[in-house]
């Protein structure tokens, strides 16, 4: 059974992001387990990079801490395997920048991810123009391959949107604002129109991320799309808590019930 398709049976879905190794490796595994077992439908498991140029201050700081704590690609893959061992059954998508994957070796990385039990990849610095090197390796690894989730932005013109959406696999990650990750106080006016534009070109689920910080915002956007992605708010709330695992449970439950 394809875990991603399965996850989208009850829409809109809740997709938090959390980086492995933050605030330390053991806690991050516990946090992700707690998110998974308390309402998350899919988790973006963050891999850390020294130069995360699409990220705002919250995720920059968290991934920096993770690196200082000694997180590596290898430990991250082992953590995914550990999550599966603990009975986490929802899709886990690895989200990270390209260079650490290249350094690990793309074939080894893709195989390692599959063996650990990951369900796909999000690579923010790998646009359509550059994805073939990666997708050819994922394609050779397994049939059907684990999906590389494609991203769309408000700046993508229609023609581009069409070519990106046409063969999209898994779901589409629609960046809701021109900017880096981080919460915004209000939802941009053009979002409804943007979502409508994307829907014209694809039948895979469309999920919106960047800037969603509260259950209310999630509910509002959830009415328009198939899934909401919550990154910085999740990292900040859980990362600043004395009891991160308890906070993760609450956090997931609140967003889950807002999206019901």
């Amino acid at each position: 059974m394809n875990r991603i398709e399965n996850a989208f049976k009850n829409k809109p879905i809740f997709m938090p992001y959390f980086p492995l190794g933050y605030p330390d490796l053991d806690t991050s595994i516990d946090v992700i387990e707690a998110l998974a077992k308390n309402g998350a439908d899919l988790i973006e498991v963050g891999l850390s990079f020294s130069d995360p140029l699409a990220d705002g201050p919250v995720i920059q700081k968290a991934t920096q801490t993770a690196l200082e704590q000694g997180i590596t690609v290898k430990k991250s893959l082992a953590a995914v395997a550990e999550l599966r061992k603990r009975g986490v059954t929802i899709p886990l998508i690895l989200m990270g920048y390209y260079n650490p994957m290249l350094a690990y070796g793309l074939e080894a990385f893709v195989r390692g991810a599959r063996e650990a039990g990951a369900d796909g990849f999000i690579i923010p610095d790998l646009p359509l123009e550059e994805e073939e090197e990666f997708t050819s390796i994922v394609g050779a690894d397994r049939d059907p391959p684990l999906p590389l989730i494609r991203m769309l932005a408000p700046t993508s013109p229609n023609e581009r949107m069409e070519s990106i959406a046409r063969n999209a696999k898994g779901f589409i990650y629609l960046v809701s604002v021109t900017g880096v990750t981080g919460t915004r106080t209000s939802i941009s006016d053009g979002l409804g129109e943007l979502i409508a534009r994307v829907r014209e070109y694809t039948s895979v689920p469309v999920c919106v991320g960047f800037g969603i910080g509260t259950p209310e915002q999630a509910k509002q956007i959830g009415a328009l799309v198939d899934g909401v992605i919550v990154g910085s708010a999740c990292v900040k709330t859980i990362g600043s808590s004395e009891k991160p695992v308890e906070t993760a449970k609450q956090f997931a439950a609140e967003f889950r019930s807002a999206l019901k």
């Binding site: 140029l53 699409a54 390209y98 923010p124 610095d125 790998l126 646009p127 359509l128 123009e129 550059e130 991203m151 769309l152 932005a153 408000p154 700046t155 993508s156 013109p157 581009r160 990106i164 960046v175 021109t178 900017g179």
Partner: peptide, 12 residues
Amino acid sequence: GGQFVPETLMPA
């Protein structure tokens, strides 16, 4: 070389 940037920047 190449263009390894987020989608938001590709149109620019």
